[in-house]
Structures are given as structure tokens and as C-alpha cells.
Simulated assay, not measured.
Amino acid sequence: MYRAGMDDVIKDGDPGAQVTRFILLGLTDQADQKQLLFAVFLMICTVTLVGNLGMIDLIRARSTLHTPMYFLLSVLSFLDTCNSSVFTPRLLISILTTDRSISFTGCVVQMASMILHGTGSLLLAVMAYDRFVAICHPLLYHAIMSKRLCIQLVMVTYAAGVFVSAPQTRNAFILPYRGPNVIDRFFCDIPPVLHLACSDTTVANVILLCLSALVTVPTVSAILISYAFTLVTICRMRSLEAQRKAFSICASHLTALSLFYGSVFFVYVQPNPGSAAAYNKGLSVFHTIVIPMLNPLVYSLRNKDVEAAVQIRVLNFSRKGIC
């Protein structure tokens, strides 16, 4: 099963062993499916990089997009680019080669990066507050959502990511690992790694739950409160055209929220996460690889500002090419 890296496999009941490498089973063992999977994920990786980096360049180049909303969107695109870069290259390598092993240090770095860049949920909460201010206090929007405040909020999200990532990663890898070392995932996720620890993981799971709740509860609360006030304000608008415009402003962000929290819920909130490995793998792929590709599309579709900026950008490139 593990042609290359077979010597790295540690079986149960080997008290003298010390795990130095983990084996990531990946998505499939079927050789006839690997070429198709490699082509699909290579395309997804390319679209993700082009879409998110293109969005960042577009927002930077067009002065009409120099607003708090698009500044936060550019930060989200940067997070999605980093998030995709953590998982997709390793997945492509595991599909292309027979060696599925990852070093202990590599697993630590991968998990820390995953948690750090996974704090995009905090940024989604900031974006929800931005939509609340834009609809409920439109005359004070630029005064409240100043450039300084936006930068401070982004710095807070990164600081919170480091604050959560460091103890969660230490919490997982401070435990002894002597075997087995096979992870039925394509990346080092926290639950399956803790499952391999050779000691009681009750305390580790409690710490994981507390740290996750410390991020999730305030974030979800801020999003719900922001949109509660926003929806009340929209419903009080007398003009149907104003209501339609307000809903269109929130539509992209609500779609991104649904994709993010929907996938997180189905991946991690389950009575028995180990009961359906293939199901969990598919959802993990959607959460970690597909969503970063979809976000630029979600915020671009039916967005007249972005469409106009893209047309001008393409026209400028065409003129430079002709010259």
C-alpha cells in the first residue's frame, strides 16, 4: 500500500518506536484515478492563484476599488492564496508520487499554518461589521471604517490567529507519538493526529474545544448581531429598489459565509467523525481547497464595480500588447 515510504510505517504495539514521520493516505489508492485527480487539483490550484492574486492586483490598481470593503476583500484573497498553498502542493505531490510520508516537523508546520490561515472566519466577521456600517450608517461609513481602523482590525485577526495557532499546535504535538503513524487524510488535521497519540487525550481535546470556542463563539455572535441589525434596517426601507440594492451588497458576503461555515460544520461537528472517512475527505477538500477558489468568483459575479475594473484592466493590457 505504501510502496515508497514503507519503512516509515509504524504499527500498533511498538513501544520502542518514536514517530519521526507520518503517512498521509491521501484521497485514493486507485492508480487509474490519480491522473484525473492530479489534473483536476492542478486546475483548481491554478484558478485559485490566478483568481485571488488577480483580485489583489485589480483592487490595488483601480482607485475606484480603494474602499474598506475591497481592502478587506484583498486581505481575504491573500489568506485564501496562503491557505491553498499550504494544502494543494502537498496533495499534488502525494498524487503524483508513491511517497506519502511527511516529516514530524512538516506536520507541525502544516497544522500551524492551517490554524493560522483558518482564522479567515475572523476576517469574515470584520466584513460583516463593514456591511452593517455601510447599510445602517451610510453617511458615517467612511468616517467609521477609516483606513486606520481597517488596518487595525486586520492586524487583530492575524494576532488572534497566532494566539490560537501556537497553543493548539503545541497542545497536539506535546503528546507522545510511538505508533501507529498513519493519518487517513491528505493533510495533518488536529482530530486525526490527536487520535494517534499514545496517551490520554482528554485534556488535549478539552483545550482544543476551549480554544476553538474562544474563536468561534465571538465570531459567530458578531456576524449574527451585525446581520440582525442589517436585516432590520433593510426591512424598514420604504423603497423596494433600496432594499434590492442593500440585499445585493450583502449577497456575496452571505454566500461566502454559507460556504465557509457550512463546510466547517459538516467536517468537524459530527457525532462520530471517524465513521465516514471518504465523506470527511470530500468535505475537507471542499473546505480547504475549493472554497479559496470560489471566493473570488463569489465576489466578482454580478459585481458591476469589479466587472468594470476587469474590463478596463484587460483593455489596458491589450493596448500594451499592441504597442
Rank of each mutant, 00 (worst) to 15 (best):
V9H: 02
K11I: 05
G13R: 08
G16R: 01
V19Y: 01
R21L: 01
L25I: 04
G26C: 00
G26M: 02
A31H: 07
A31N: 07
Q33L: 05
K34A: 01
L36H: 05
L37D: 02
F38K: 07
A39K: 11
A39H: 06
M43N: 14
V47C: 06
V50I: 13
V50T: 02
G51K: 01
G51M: 03
L53E: 02
M55V: 03
L58W: 02
I59Q: 05
R60Y: 11
A61N: 15
H66D: 13
F71D: 10
L72A: 10
L73A: 14
F78S: 09
F78G: 08
T81K: 08
C82V: 11
C82G: 12
N83Q: 12
V86E: 01
F87S: 04
L91D: 05
I95Q: 08
T97R: 13
T98H: 13
R100Y: 00
R100Q: 10
R100F: 01
F104N: 04
T105W: 06
G106C: 03
G106S: 04
C107A: 12
Q110N: 09
M114I: 10
M114H: 14
I115S: 00
H117R: 07
G120Q: 13
G120C: 11
L122H: 13
L122S: 12
L124P: 12
A125L: 04
A125E: 03
V126P: 12
D130E: 15
R131D: 02
R131W: 03
I135F: 03
C136F: 02
H137A: 07
L140C: 11
H142A: 13
I151L: 11
V156F: 07
V156Q: 07
Y158E: 13
A160D: 14
S165H: 01
A166F: 13
P167I: 04
Q168E: 14
Q168W: 10
P180Y: 05
I183L: 14
R185L: 08
L196K: 00
S199D: 15
T201A: 00
T202I: 11
V203A: 15
V206D: 15
V206I: 15
L208D: 15
L209C: 15
T216N: 12
T219H: 03
T219M: 02
V220K: 04
A222L: 11
Y227L: 04
F229G: 08
V232I: 10
V232Q: 09
C235H: 09
M237S: 00
M237G: 05
R238L: 11
R238H: 12
A242F: 10
S252K: 09
S258Y: 03
Y261R: 08
V264K: 11
F265W: 02
F265Q: 03
P271V: 00
P271Q: 00
S275A: 12
A277M: 07
G282D: 00
F286M: 09
H287I: 07
T288A: 12
I291M: 06
I291T: 06
P292I: 06
M293A: 11
M293S: 01
L294I: 08
P296R: 02
P296Y: 07
L297E: 08
R302L: 13
N303T: 07
N303E: 02
D305R: 14
E307F: 12
A308P: 05
A309F: 00
V310A: 07
Q311R: 15
I312S: 03
I312Q: 07
V314D: 05
V314C: 09
S318F: 04
S318T: 05
K320G: 05
I322F: 09
